[in-house]
């Protein structure tokens, strides 16, 4: 099939970008979306033009590297599908396709369709972990975990950190991402000691990183390739408010020894 692509080209974070039109005459319907872009890039290189930069690695929907807007929808808007898992059979001959990078203050554009998502790492650094030193763990079966809790934690833990939630949210909010981590850890018994601290710190950093607020639009849930539920956002809100009222400052513990 024949497609017309409009791709956002921008050579660096501080240079202006624009949509550029490309005609692609031979697209096979079994190609993945990224393979279609590979073909475009090979033709661009042949013409001594710069290929389109886009991020990708696993190409099987799990690493969270890939992602951009296709026709105004994050990852193309197909249920539970990342762009690397999206196949061209969803498009038809003659279609015109618009491809744009994620847009958010917290995700500055690096080049073309590639953005900088390190803000997500900093949110995790704030408390998205359980402080357990290597080698100090008790037996894996020492603390039984109700299956339903383990399942809910797993539902939230599936987040691949792709950023589609931020991209699709009108407010560029990172609520779904942040809440998925808070819920994952706070639903498990191992996560309890740091539960309030975690909510407090991760939300604080989420705000400092200049993500927008959540107005419960649900766009994020709809385009999240892992189907993370906004129920997690409610959990985050609850734990955060509880933490704001209940959290006690930690005592400093020095002393001889």
């Amino acid at each position: 099939m024949k497609l017309t692509l409009n791709v956002w080209r921008q050579s660096g974070p501080n240079t202006p970008g624009k949509m550029v039109k490309y005609d692609l005459p031979n697209v096979n319907e079994d190609m993945s979306f990224l393979e279609m872009l590979d073909v475009l890039n090979e033709t661009l290189i042949a013409k001594s033009e710069e290929p389109v930069t886009f991020e990708h690695d696993c190409r099987e929907g799990i690493c969270g590297s890939c992602g951009f807007m296709i026709n105004g929808k994050a990852h193309g808007g197909f249920p539970k599908t990342t762009v690397c898992q999206l196949h061209m059979r969803h498009y038809k001959d003659g279609d015109e396709i618009f491809i744009e990078p994620w847009r958010a203050t917290a995700f500055p554009i690096v080049k073309d369709l590639m953005v900088n998502r390190s803000a997500f790492d900093r949110i995790i650094q704030a408390g998205g972990f359980i402080s357990v030193p290597t080698g100090s763990a008790v037996d894996g079966n020492a603390i039984p975990i109700p299956k339903s809790n383990a399942d809910r934690a797993m539902d939230a833990a599936q987040c691949i950190g792709c950023g589609a939630c931020v991209a699709s949210c009108t407010n560029a909010s990172a609520s779904l991402f942040t809440s998925a981590k808070i819920a994952h850890l706070n639903l498990l018994p191992q996560g309890q000691p740091e539960k309030l601290d975690r909510a407090l710190k991760m939300v604080t950093v989420m705000n400092e990183e200049k993500f927008g607020s959540c107005t419960n639009l649900q766009e994020c849930e709809a385009t999240c390739p892992k189907g993370i539920s906004i129920e997690n956002i409610a959990i985050m809100n609850r734990h955060f408010v509880e933490a704001s009222f209940m959290q006690r400052p930690a005592m400093s513990e020095g002393g001889a020894g």
Partner: peptide
């Protein structure tokens, strides 16, 4: 949080 808007944005 989003100073530059999308060229195309489609709600889902």
């Amino acid at each position: 949080a989003r100073p530059q808007s999308y060229v195309m944005k489609t709600p889902t």
